[in-house]
Design a binder for these strands. Structure first.
Lengths: 196, 196
DNA sequence: AAAAATGAAATGGTCATTCAAAAAATTGAA
DNA sequence: TTCAATTTTTTGAATGACCATTTCATTTTT
């Protein structure tokens, strides 16, 4: 069978611990010891598996990006019309699996660190480009070119803003509600009485 | 005339240096020595004037919040109709004075740190409450209660999202353009053909 | 002369990373 | 299987940097 198993298990455990620890303490303040302790390991083992704190953070963000990508593709598969697919992008962003306080919190930390860590900046750019291109593709079929970019920027900024607020939410999030609201906002922005 | 002068000058210099340094290096990573050096002072004098790094950060955010409040009130003074006043809130957020890469950058750092620093969390909450109440007041005159909150959250999230992106902008920002786009988004969200 | 302001150097603490050695798992020969 | 040899995994204890804050002697202002 496949060779290494322990390695994969530890990677997963440590990444999960990182998400949790970063949420609890903040990206810049959290220590290796805290993360390790959440995973029931020692700080030294993090370096054994990931090489450095920075590489651990990078791996963690890659993992979250993969979750987002997966959610998008899954939901995309069943969508038929352009509007369906637009809603798929919105739904993915607010899916039950992703739209949690913990994860939104880590994303906010990520956004604020990215400008200062080249490797994170690259990840950030890749992710944003993917979302942008999905939006462009679907909105292109629904709106005139002139209005398309306005609506795209509005929707993308809206999603980021909602995540930003979610990171500080006092009460548990309601993904289903967030999806409904996102659709409502999209519907308002799309109402076409061709005045533009 | 007024008593202390040097003190006020130093406060201003150090806060300006803090904005600049936080933008360049990141809130969590920037050191007292770096900030001091930007102001042509020593780290010790920061403690002399502010007491601690954390208090300096707090004073800096208070300063930025004051700028935002001022921009809002100034622009508000000349507005007559509810729509005018709604646009005033948007314009304030993207005014030439505020909507700079440097300041957006500091705001993003602030958002990400606030959850972990009680004193910053309080400031954040105060600021958000003020913006929210302005929006509620103006949108209340323009929309049905049911739709008002949807549009308010959409606009507020939109503004945050735009700032978030501005913090990472490669090219210089264009405040006038940002104001025009914000108005366009608001106009789209407000088009009332009373279907909701 | 007194008070305020300044900065060089000392202090004390934190933390990522390294390293040597222990512990656990794996292998393979008997 | 059994058991020693070998490899992989794990950790406690240095190591070496870095940095906020304090101290204190000196300079500047009032």
């Amino acid at each position: 069978m496949g060779r290494t198993r322990i390695r994969d298990i530890r990677h997963r455990e440590l990444i999960d611990a990182t998400v949790s620890a970063v949420h609890q303490r903040g990206y810049a303040v959290v220590t290796m010891a805290e993360i390790a302790s959440l995973a029931g390991a020692s700080a030294a083992s993090i370096n054994y598996y990931f090489g450095s704190k920075e590489k651990l953070m990078e791996a963690t963000m890659r993992h979250l990006m993969t979750l987002l990508k997966q959610a998008m593709l899954e939901r995309y598969a069943t969508a038929q019309t352009p509007l369906d697919r637009l809603n798929a992008v919105l739904d993915a962003n607010f899916s039950d699996r992703l739209y949690t306080i913990e994860q939104c919190s880590v994303w906010v930390q990520f956004w604020s660190s990215a400008p200062y860590v080249p490797t994170l900046a690259r990840l950030h750019q890749i992710n944003r480009a993917r979302v942008t291109s999905h939006f462009r593709a679907e909105l292109g079929a629904l709106l005139s070119p002139a209005r398309r970019e306005t609506v795209r920027v509005a929707l993308q900024s809206y999603m980021d803003g909602v995540w930003l607020e979610a990171a500080q939410a006092a009460a548990p999030l309601q993904p289903a509600r967030a999806r409904a609201e996102a659709r409502e906002v999209a519907a308002l922005l799309l109402r076409s009485n061709s005045q533009g």
